[in-house]
Nucleic acid binder design. Structure first.
Lengths: 173, 173
DNA sequence: TATTGTTATACTCTATAACTATA
DNA sequence: TATAGTTATAGAGTATAACAATA
């Protein structure tokens, strides 16, 4: 499907193409990324980057990064869970959770308390401030999502989620 | 749409919920990310990460990163273009191109040659080795894409691309 | 032996300010 | 003055190996 140089509008006729004289683009014309547009993953990455950049900007007002918001919201939804459960739920590596939780704890949003029945583990619970901030963060995220997905009706949004789900399943994840 | 704690299966009846006693999850049960699943961007990011991680793994066999492959492929498709044209085509910042081109040049895949009419600029052209590697990289990327998008028929793939395009356009990009 | 949380580390991607040489 | 390429730097996300405490 994807082929190099299939899109070059300056393409010279085959006869004019000398062995080492590839058709050159003009130094001033606008150049495209057509050679990559056959790759669905390329489009997914570019659109996702746009969306994530805006979400990051929005959450900055609440002093949250995307991953920090995700962690806080899952803790509020599942108070008492262990760090390893949280890492599994978000598919992030356990080491990467540590500094995130350090920050949430030092900001008084989350508590780490020893699990009596397993003294290796910590139970994570939100404080009232953590619950309030999680709510505000989800509201901000919802408003952000309306900006990007508001043009899609319910059926189209479901279609997008369904297609994404099938791609995820194809990965064997 | 997205609401904290809407998905907690351990939710106690309202009357049993004391002010500071949130319903706790069991330390052993599997915890989900339901509190974030209302966010379409969250699904996009997770699926995109899966796809990109596999592509990165595949391209490693050719000693290419995703961004390095993208740069090489666009140069092969538009030989003679300037670095600023390339940066615009891929929506990457000019500074981030420099080390990528340094690497491609030192590996003998790309040439930087002064533009006679504008001595500030460099024209980028692929070598024969660069052309060959670009072709192999696109073949590897196509095979990788079949793994993830092969289950979708042509219509579904077009649907996915169309929906992604509308999200991109909603962003004003 | 295996698991929980931790430390240290590294790689990738992205972004911005400021410099140089040219225009 | 503006632009092309560059340097330096920083932040964010992700990943792995190895350790101490505990199971």
């Amino acid at each position: 499907m994807a082929q190099v140089s299939s899109s070059n509008k300056n393409a010279a006729p085959a006869l004019a193409a000398a062995p080492d004289a590839a058709p050159r683009v003009d130094t001033h014309e606008v150049v495209d990324d057509a050679a990559l547009q056959g790759l669905v993953g390329y489009h997914m990455r570019r659109v996702t980057n746009l969306v994530q950049a805006d979400l990051a900007r929005v959450l900055k007002d609440l002093d949250l990064r995307i991953i920090t918001m995700s962690v806080l919201v899952v803790i509020v939804d599942h108070p008492g869970l262990r760090q390893s459960q949280l890492a599994d739920a978000l598919s992030i590596e356990r080491p990467n959770l540590v500094s995130i939780l350090d920050e949430l704890e030092s900001r008084g949003l989350v508590l780490r308390t020893r699990v009596p029945t397993d003294r290796r583990a910590y139970a994570l619970t939100p404080t009232r401030a953590g619950e309030r901030l999680a709510e505000r963060a989800l509201e901000a995220a919802d408003e952000h999502e309306r900006k990007f997905f508001g043009d899609l009706d319910a059926k189209e949004r479901a279609q997008l989620l369904s297609l994404l789900g099938r791609v995820r399943d194809a990965a064997g994840a």
